[in-house]
Nucleic acid binder design. Structure first.
Lengths: 237, 237
DNA sequence: CGCGAAGTTGATTACTATCAATCTGAGTGG
DNA sequence: CCACTCAGATTGATAGTAATCAACTTCGCG
């Protein structure tokens, strides 16, 4: 078994100083924002460290800002009636969190850092005001929002109708693709989240996830040791 | 058992002549678009009948337009590897379909009419161009997109972790809320979709859905006959 | 070195899928 | 107008998968 790659290092190299520009240009967009817009944006940004286990925002908080992930990894989760944790999504460098708040006026889930993270908090008012005068930013916003819609629909396909093993594999593959989209070697990586959190996302129990890992490993489809994963077989989406 | 209410009639009364204005104002938004914008929008709209069973757009089609539902009911579905139908979402009057295409450049699922429907097809380019000059439209677009994100997250909560019966009940309740948001009496309604389609959405088999209906009825929680449903008990979301 | 959190494995139970038969109701044509 | 037909829906019996409960292992950390 090889050593895990230094994913964190690679990821943080990928992100350069100006996180907004980065999130918008490198990940979401082709078009670069002009410098005047960037300067104004910078003025309204609050850059904030979010240590592992802490939250960027909480379910029910009234909506005010969007959160651009500059570094780290988040889960978006909520508790259901039985008190079980239900994970609605995972977010990594370049993703934007809190988009559902625009329409609802409140965040609908907790954004919990599963790694030590850094977010850039931008008041939505500021973003909107700037986008009134900058078509490039406006376009960027449309794409950010649309990308979230697209990603969510993919997640829903994943959750419906696949048995545990295939569901886990699809999840790993999806993660791998997201790493790849950020220019990181994607066939081997360190999972940022626990079995419990994966289970919460996939609608399974932790034990089932663990067994699925074991089975996929035994079948030679993946290589896994704790949180380190190699995807041996490349599988179409 | 009472007769089904004339839901279709009520729904179509709710929608008046200008569907764009309607979708944006009555359902998504508080702010009304100004007349100049509306006139320009009207020029680029294609109003189209979509009979039951036919599609508004298809998975893989290259993205060009958004689809505002003026009348009727759609399912957004795709086939998984096993050839089973996976329903990603349902959409009714006032909803906007195709939003995922903005980022992807292509639609990611089929939009199939489950009732005879009417859609207003608006080229995204036109919408975007107009929104550069009309802040109200821009704001409207943000809210439309955000609302879709919010709705999808709710669906994901629904899919994960609930047993069949509760999952079905949650689904019925969610539908009821969507009717209520459109000003339609919401405790009794006619389901537009088949058991098979509900199953596809909930990640269950048709037989399981049918049994869940029977059980909920037997327990006095709902009243159901074929596609007609009354929700007896009002339940918190 | 021992403690605790995360992860694995085992045995059993509970739920859902599957396969098959039957029922219901809307639409059709004689 | 009624029998026929067929898709949608329901019900039953059984098999398969995941949940649950419980024991145990691994690893990081003071």
């Amino acid at each position: 078994m090889e050593m895990p790659i230094k994913l964190k290092k690679v990821m943080s190299n990928y992100v350069h100083a100006n996180c907004i520009d980065c999130a918008m240009r490198d990940h979401c967009f082709t078009q670069r924002l002009d410098n005047a817009t960037l300067l104004k944006l910078e003025a309204s940004i609050t850059r904030r460290r979010v240590p592992r286990g802490e939250i960027a925002y909480s379910s029910g908080d009234s909506f005010g800002a969007l959160f651009f992930i500059h570094e780290g990894f988040f889960k978006e989760s909520d508790l259901n009636d039985q008190g079980e944790e239900c994970v609605v999504g995972f977010h990594m460098v370049g993703d934007v969190m809190g988009l559902e708040g625009i329409a609802d006026g409140a965040y609908s889930s907790d954004a919990v850092a599963v790694q030590d993270s850094v977010v850039c908090e931008i008041p939505f008012q500021a973003l909107q005001a700037l986008s009134f005068s900058d078509p490039a930013l406006q376009q960027a916003m449309y794409r950010i929002l649309s990308r979230e819609v697209s990603q969510n629909k993919k997640s829903m396909m994943l959750l419906g109708s696949l048995p545990a093993e295939e569901r886990l594999l699809a999840f790993l593959h999806s993660l791998s693709q997201q790493y790849a989209a950020r220019g990181v070697p994607a066939s081997a990586f360190e999972l940022p989240m626990s079995r419990q959190e994966i289970a919460g996302f996939l609608g399974l129990q932790m034990e089932t996830v663990s067994r699925a890992f074991t089975k996929l490993h035994a079948d030679g489809i993946i290589n896994v040791r704790r949180r380190y994963v190699e995807i041996e077989t490349t599988i179409a989406a």
